[in-house]
Amino acid sequence: PESADLRALSRQLCLSYHRHFPLTKSKAKAILSGKTHGNSPFVIHDMKSLTAGQYFINCRQLPVLERQRSVLPPEEPAGELELSVFRRLQFRSAEAVQEVTEFAKSIPGFTELDMNDQVILLKYGVIEVMTTMLAPLMNKDGTLFAYGQIFMTREFLKSLRKPFCEMMEPKFEFAVKFNVLELDDSDMALFFAVIILSGDRPGLVNVKPIEDLQETVLLALELQLKTIHPDCPQLFAKLLQKMTDLRQLVADHVRLIHLLKKQEVQMCLHPLLQEIMRDLY
């Protein structure tokens, strides 16, 4: 493809990234660096602030309704702190799966792929994309949550009882390293598309068209990184290496969720997440 076509593809995916994801890297960066002019997130660092923060989240659901989301978190049943945090996290995750799906559909050529292959690409790619999407929301001290309205500290998450305390720590470790790459919104958009279009997922029937699409996105990503980050010639290679780390991270995450399902009597996994994680690794 001509470089003009590749640039057009980058622009298109970046637009789609802004359209489908409520908290982009640039927005998260502004919040985390305190550049939002008096609109800083509510900090959750202990049980007391968690209780206050939950009320705070409920009070600020308006932007969600404005985006015509019909699904709101269910009324919080009384229960253990850890399970309550987990319920909120998985509700947001299910919403994020929908956002990633809409993003995938906007990748040129994706919806023309075999329908079962589209399902497999999403099933395997969605948690990798979501984990990567989490990185800009994090710094070494904590993570943004609830569309950037909440900042939950890493120490608080680590203080939850086992195995809940083990859930976020590997994501922080990944995020701190990933954020060093200093990608911008358009780089992120292309990287997500590369992850989704992985032709080596188990069970794919028609691999060739997937690989062809990925090849084009990879060319666009390489060109873009060379143009935007000329001072870092290794960036493209470094970014591709992250895909290996992501697979391991997701495999560990899924193992942990399966363990939780066995151990926690009260835990109920969201049907969409259940569907994705069943027989995945």
């Binding site: 699904v71 809409e102 329908m115 999403l122 969409l272 569907e275």
Partner: peptide, 20 residues
């Protein structure tokens, strides 16, 4: 297809919100 019916629905239906 039955095993991934919500994903199928998400992929096929772009406008109406999916009842989860």
């Amino acid at each position: 297809k039955e095993k991934h019916k919500i994903l199928h629905r998400l992929l096929q239906n772009s406008t109406s919100p999916v009842d989860l």
